[in-house]
Amino acid sequence: MHGPFHRGGARKPMGEINVVPFIDVMLVLLVIFMITAPMLTQGVNVDLPQVTSEPIDPPEDSDPIIVSVDRDGQYYLSIGGDETEMPLEEVADRVIILLERKPGTPVMVRGDRNVSYGQVVTLMGTLQTAGVANVGLISEPPSGGE
């Protein structure tokens, strides 16, 4: 006599995988990345002037050296995404060292639109004194409303 839970015959292996736990884990990871991604954006808040110009194609083998001036007149040196605040004299010294290591590295200046023209010119003069032959200026394309 067989009980009510007895199955006749041999057990067959189940050929399905329960994917619900995998979906739950993926949704949790998606939420975590959506929350943390905006926190990873770093940089100096610089309101760039908007002009129409042709973009410069940087060399593929090197990241440019970017020197920024924010609206408070503070100078920042950015190499490969790492931005460090420093005085103008130290910016020139670091740029000299970086250009000795990689002579063809382009040097770009980002100046806030509200910073005085004199500070940007002083920065460019300091870079020229440091031995930088060509300095590029970074701007944004004009928006439709302005």
Rank of each mutant, 00 (worst) to 15 (best):
M14V: 10
T129C: 05
L127T: 05
F5E: 14
I32T: 06
I65A: 00
V107S: 01
V107G: 06
V121I: 13
Y76E: 03
N134E: 13
K102L: 15
V69K: 00
D57Q: 11
P141A: 12
D24R: 13
G125V: 03
M86H: 09
T41L: 10
S143G: 10
A10L: 09
V19E: 05
L127I: 03
E16Q: 11
S68M: 00
T36G: 08
Q128P: 06
L29I: 08
P13L: 09
F33M: 12
L77K: 02
L123G: 00
L88E: 15
A10R: 13
S143R: 01
V135G: 01
Q42I: 11
P59R: 04
I96Y: 08
S62D: 14
T41K: 11
G118A: 14
G145S: 14
S62T: 15
G81S: 04
P4L: 15
Y75I: 06
V120I: 12
T105V: 10
H2G: 11
L127W: 08
L123E: 00
T126I: 06
Q50P: 02
T105E: 04
V109H: 05
M14A: 07
Q74Y: 11
S139E: 03
P59L: 06
P55I: 03
D63A: 08
Q74S: 15
V28L: 15
G81Y: 04
P59F: 01
S116V: 11
P87I: 14
G104M: 02
K102E: 15
R71A: 14
E60N: 08
D57W: 00
